[in-house]
Amino acid sequence: MEHADLVIIGAGQAGLASAHVGRRLGYDPLVLEAGSEAVGAWPDYYESLVLFSPAKYSALPGHPFPGDPDSYPRRDEVVTYLRDYASALDATIRTQARVTSVSRVDGALRVAVDDGRAWSAQTVISATGDFLTPNRPVLPGQDSFTGALIHAADYRAPDVYAGQRVVVVGGGNSAVQIAAELGTVADVTLATRRPISWIKQRPLGRDLHWWLERTRLDTAPLARWLKRLPVSVLDDGQYKAALGVGKVCRREMFTRLGARGVMWANGEWEPVDAIVLATGYHLSLDYLAGSGALAADGRPLHKRGVSTTVNGLGYVGMEYQRSFSSKTLRGVGRDAAYVLDRLRRQR
C-alpha cells in the first residue's frame, strides 16, 4: 500500500479547489477521480446550461475565469476552464480510479480503489459532492407509463422532442431553463408542487452575487435556516416571460401517471409523450459505508465539513455545508481552506 500526504476523492470543482488549497497549505495532494478526466459532472449536463453567477463570481482559487467578468459562462466554457485548472495544478491526479472504501488502519486512513490499489493517508477529503446521483422520485403509476421518462441528468438538447407534448417536473433553475428551451420546439408544461418563486438576477442594476458579496450572505453560516427556504429561480426576466407565453405553461403537480399520459390535480387526463424530472441530485457517499463517518440514513456526521467521528476526514462541495455557496464554483475554495486548515491542526 502506497502512502499519500493528502488524498482527495473526486476531481470536480470541489476536488480541484481542495488540491490547490492543499498545496498552498503545505500538503502534497493526490486526487482520485472515477471518470476519464478532471472536470467532474459538467460534460454530462444539458448543452445549453448557463451559469446564474457571472464569470467573476465563478472562479476557483488562484485562477480567474477567463473572458468578460460580467458574462454568464455556458457549460462548455466551464468544462474548458476546469480542464485548464487541472492541468495547471501542482498535484497528482489519477483518473479511472473509483474509490470503493475508506477505512481506519494502523492509525491512518486507507483509501481503496476499484482496481485493487490503495493508499494510506493522515488526511482525506471527500469531494464527490451532490451532483453524481440523480434524485429520481417514484411517481404513482410510473410503471404503466409508455412514454419517455428521464431525469434532467440524461437530457441534452430539445431537438428529439420537437412536436411532442412534454412535462418538466421541478421548480428550480434547471427545470425552468429546460422547460423554456423545450418550449421552442414542443408543447411544454412545468409541473410544480407550489408556485414558482422568482429572484431578480440584477436587483437595482447589480447582479445578485454582487449584493451577496457586499452583505456577506454568500458566506454566512446560515445552512439550517437556508434549507427551510422554498426553491427559487434566479431570473433576468426571460424565463418568467417564457412561462405562460407560447408553448410553455405551469400547472400544479400531476397526481399520477397512466399508460399514455398524466392525471392533473383536477382529475383531468392529458396525453404526454415525455416527462423530464428536473428533481435535483442527492448525496451518495457509499465508499464511506462502514467507516463510521455516516449516520444511519447515509448522511455524513460533520461540523462545517470536518468529520466529527473520523479523525482526518473532511468534506468539500456539499450543499449548505458551511454557507449558501458551499457547493458552487465560487464557494468550494473557501470551504476547502477552512476544512483543510482544521484537519491540519488534528495531525
Results as ranks from 00 to 15, higher is better:
G258E: 15
W225H: 14
P54Q: 06
F52G: 12
T328S: 15
K56L: 08
A295H: 06
V99E: 03
G205L: 07
V272T: 10
W269V: 03
V248L: 13
R98L: 07
E77C: 10
A265I: 08
G290S: 03
V31S: 11
D235Q: 04
A121Y: 05
G267I: 09
F131G: 05
S58W: 09
V272K: 06
Y57S: 11
E77I: 08
D5S: 11
R83W: 03
P64R: 11
L294Q: 02
T184Q: 12
Y287E: 07
H282K: 08
L204Y: 05
V339P: 00
S103H: 00
G258L: 10
F65Y: 10
D335W: 15
R110E: 14
Q13R: 13
T328E: 03
A4F: 12
A278G: 10
D130G: 13
L60Q: 12
E213V: 10
V168L: 07
G26K: 13
G35R: 06
D218G: 15
G40W: 09
G237K: 12
A223W: 04
L51W: 04
A336L: 00
L212G: 12
V99I: 13
L139W: 10
L139S: 06
R260V: 05
Y57Q: 11
G172M: 12
A289Q: 14
K200N: 10
V105Y: 03
A336S: 14
D236H: 13
R216H: 07
Q96Y: 09
S307D: 13
G170E: 08
A241Y: 13
A4M: 11
Q177W: 02
L51G: 05
Y155N: 04
D115Q: 03
S325I: 10
L329I: 01
E213S: 12
A112S: 14
L285P: 00
Y27G: 00
L340S: 04
G147Y: 12
